[in-house]
């Protein structure tokens, strides 16, 4: 079993090329997603705060 895993991880001797490629793909895709989500949350929060402020003052 563990031999199977190591065999798989070795990628026929190409491990140092295959895994960085997949790793970079993961890092880039997740990174862009997280960055976009964080910006979204931040703006959404600001908007809510501002709207509440406005309502509070109008009262």
């Amino acid at each position: 079993m563990s031999q199977g895993v190591t065999h798989f991880l070795e990628m026929g001797g190409y491990a140092r090329f295959v895994w960085p490629a997949f790793g970079l793909a993961g890092v880039l895709l997740v990174g862009m997603l997280v960055q976009s989500l964080r910006a979204y949350r931040q703006r959404q929060g600001e908007l809510e705060r501002l709207q509440q402020d406005g309502r509070g003052r109008r009262r």
């Binding site: 997603l33 979204y40 703006r43 908007l47 406005g54």
Partner: peptide
């Protein structure tokens, strides 16, 4: 997601 963020940013500016 990014377009929604940009729309909210516009709204914030207007507000």
């Amino acid at each position: 997601i990014r377009i929604r963020t940009a729309i909210i940013a516009r709204k914030l500016q207007v507000l």
